[in-house]
């Protein structure tokens, strides 16, 4: 009877732990399964990436369609090259699509906003390894303030 009780309580302990793991896995942590799915790679060159980091989200109208996998500097023209992994389920973006670096909220983290272009005859879809041509750099607050002050100065 005593041994039975011990084993019963240890069983309850194990079940509680599994419950905790399930809660942490399903409700607390983001599922890594979704990010480990099939992806294809696109590249984009920006003049300035601001505070963009690896693993930042790539969003189309607020929906996450991929992640930034690496950021490097082009050796020839010294501009940042951002490697984007887009989930395979969101394939078939037209070649005329554009990307820009946006900020969520006033002080939030930066992400890549992906603007699908129009598709009409003669426009191919983006393939694995393509470079996105139309890119808009991050807004750097210091540059904006500088510009504002410069304009004020020249008005007077």
């Amino acid at each position: 009877m005593n041994k039975y009780k011990t084993e019963l309580m240890v069983g309850v302990f194990v079940v509680l732990t599994i419950g905790a793991i399930l809660l942490l896995a399903l409700k607390v942590a983001n599922q890594t399964m979704a990010t480990e799915g099939d992806t294809y790679t696109l590249y984009a060159k920006f003049d300035n990436i601001g505070g963009l980091k690896e693993r930042s989200a790539v969003k189309v109208g607020g929906v996450t369609v991929g992640r930034v996998t690496s950021i490097s500097l082009d050796k020839e023209d010294y501009t940042p090259v951002v490697e984007l992994s887009i989930y395979q389920q969101y394939a078939d973006f037209p070649e005329t699509s554009s990307v820009s670096i946006l900020t969520s909220g006033l002080l939030g983290e930066q992400y890549v906003g992906f603007q699908p272009g129009f598709s009409f005859d003669g426009v191919a879809n983006l393939e694995d390894g393509d470079y996105l041509q139309d890119t808009k750099s991050a807004l750097v607050l210091e540059d904006l303030i500088g510009q504002f002050l410069f304009n004020r100065g020249s008005d007077e």
Partner: peptide, 15 residues
């Protein structure tokens, strides 16, 4: 509460 938590916490890094 749950969704921002979910997008911030990473399974392999944090848990």
């Amino acid at each position: 509460y749950w969704s921002i938590m979910q997008s911030t916490v990473e399974w392999d890094k944090d848990v």
